[in-house]
Design a protein around this nucleic acid. Structure first.
Length: 212
DNA sequence: GCGACAG
DNA sequence: ATCTTGTCGC
């Protein structure tokens, strides 16, 4: 499926100044076999929460490197279905084209939702980054099989970089630019950070409630 | 055959 | 991803 859909991905363009940016993440409760997807939409100047939704469901697919979209895609789509507005762009806690088949979760969901999307992962899956400076805002190309699939981005001085790659309908430069615009005072861009917090809170409240 | 391997 | 004790820094 990935090898087939990869040709549908558009690497290029993307909003220069979107009105909103969304972050999407998933938390798991291994004991109960349940997962909690969360989407947080923030305003672009200020990164304040405009809307947020969550969706609980059963974990229906195991974790397997390269197939993350089959595990987290369904839960995330359920959450997006509850969203009342369409984000200008979505940042996922995963890779976009910086993937073995150039079709990571960010590309897959951006394609299905037909919304500009960006992959922002905390570690490298494929490729090797060029020399990255310590200064916040620094970037270095992420090279895989001789091609630039994304970039290592230093969102804050003195912290490990995040790895940004185009998902769908966004170019490499624009992807990095948008991620940096979404960063406030933490390593992780605000919408994504808030989505992670919301997903974990949703899980905690569900596990604290009386069991079925 | 061995090492790597998003979350 | 989740767990878990302590430490560092603003």
């Amino acid at each position: 499926m990935q090898e087939h859909l990869r040709s549908e991905v558009i690497v290029g363009g993307g909003p220069r100044r979107p009105r909103t940016i969304a972050g999407a993440d998933v938390a798991y409760d291994d004991d109960r076999g349940r997962c909690f997807a969360a989407v947080v939409v923030t305003s672009v100047p200020g990164m304040k929460v405009v809307e947020q939704v969550t969706a609980e469901s059963a974990v229906a697919f195991p974790y397997a490197a390269g197939l993350l979209a089959f595990r987290e895609g369904p839960p995330l789509l359920a959450a997006f279905a509850k969203l009342h507005r369409r984000p200008g762009v979505i940042i996922f806690d995963a890779h976009g084209i910086a993937h073995p088949r150039r079709f990571g979760l960010a590309s897959h969901l951006g394609y299905l939702l037909d919304v500009p999307s960006i992959g922002c992962a905390k570690s490298i899956f494929v490729g090797k980054p060029l020399k990255l400076n310590e200064q916040a805002g620094s970037t270095a190309a992420l090279i895989d099989a001789g091609e630039c699939v994304g970039a290592a981005v230093r969102t804050r001085t003195g912290v490990r970089p995040v790895y940004v790659s185009p998902g769908h309908r966004v170019g490499r430069r624009r992807a990095v630019e948008l991620v940096l615009h979404a960063v406030t005072r933490y390593r992780i861009p605000e919408p994504l950070r808030l989505a992670g917090i919301l997903a974990r809170r949703c899980k905690r409240e569900a596990s604290t409630a009386p069991r079925a």
